[in-house]
């Protein structure tokens, strides 16, 4: 049933219907003279800016810069969040040792770290990667520990019966058992990473998609701002789709 809806042409019509309605309404508002080009440009102005930025290379450069930052910060967060998450789950003493610090840092929004990050690392790559790391770390860490906690305790009893050594226990029971939730953490983490790169670049940067936004504002060019926002949205969705596909491949037993 569900598949039928997904495969049919009707599905795609429905899927793209709302964006098309929004575009038409937007265009109509422009024709009706409701928009002022210095606050809200017409769709065509965005397209023109898109072509202009594509030709002068600014678009791809800025996207590239932001993507590299996101990938660096995210991979760092993935490695650290996963490792500490598993560590905390299997060594209760390590959990007690780290818990207060981690749980106190967690409620601080990554954006609140931006002033310190700029003081520590300057406005270059370092401060961005740091903010992105913070944004992606917590969802990955929390979901790893929760994922391990939610593994059916009966599997650990099974491991006792068959005298499964600790290292096998981790690779064959703990990690795969927690994997669905770890993947949820990874998706949330990557989403956060993308939000953080934009925020960090808006506040202090000379390149990147977030810089495009703040640059557009100071040039009074809402078309640039909107183009930047669209790029953030579209790339965010593409990255999430990729992770969803990866999720399906990794968790093929369900």
């Amino acid at each position: 049933m569900k598949n039928n809806i997904k495969q049919g042409l009707g599905h795609y019509v429905l899927y793209f219907l709302l964006p098309i309605i929004i575009l038409i309404a937007w265009e109509w508002a422009d024709i009706a003279g409701l928009l002022k080009s210095y606050t809200m440009p017409a769709p065509i102005a965005i397209v023109n800016t898109f072509i202009e930025y594509l030709q002068n290379g600014k678009l791809l450069t800025n996207i590239g810069v932001s993507l590299v930052r996101v990938v660096e910060g995210f991979l760092l967060a993935l490695a650290v969040g996963f490792a500490i998450g598993i560590g905390v789950s299997i060594f209760p003493k390590f959990d007690t040792f780290t818990d207060l610090v981690i749980q106190t840092l967690r409620p601080i929004p990554p954006i609140a770290w931006i002033p310190l990050a700029i003081l520590w690392f300057g406005i270059g790559q370092g401060s961005k990667v740091f903010i992105i790391f913070l944004g992606a770390f917590f969802p990955i860490f929390i979901n790893t520990t929760e994922g391990v906690k939610n593994i059916d305790g009966r599997f650990f009893e099974l491991a006792e019966v068959y005298e499964i050594p600790k290292q096998k226990l981790i690779t064959k029971i703990v990690i795969p058992g927690a994997l669905p939730q770890i993947m949820t953490g990874i998706r949330l983490g990557l989403g956060n990473a993308w939000v953080c790169v934009v925020a960090a670049e808006m506040i202090g940067a000379t390149s990147g998609v977030g810089f495009m936004l703040s640059d557009g504002r100071s040039l009074s060019r809402p078309d640039i701002v909107i183009l930047g926002m669209l790029i953030v949205g579209i790339f965010g969705k593409i990255m999430d789709d990729l992770l969803k596909a990866l999720n399906k491949r990794l968790i093929k037993w369900q």
């Binding site: 099974l158 019966v161 005298e163 795969p176």
Partner: peptide, 20 residues
């Protein structure tokens, strides 16, 4: 003194790991 392979245990649930 504890569980071991010598004493096979079949639980009421099959207890197979779903990911293997």
């Amino acid at each position: 003194t504890g569980p071991s392979r010598e004493k096979g245990f079949i639980f009421q649930d099959h207890r197979l790991l779903p990911w293997l």
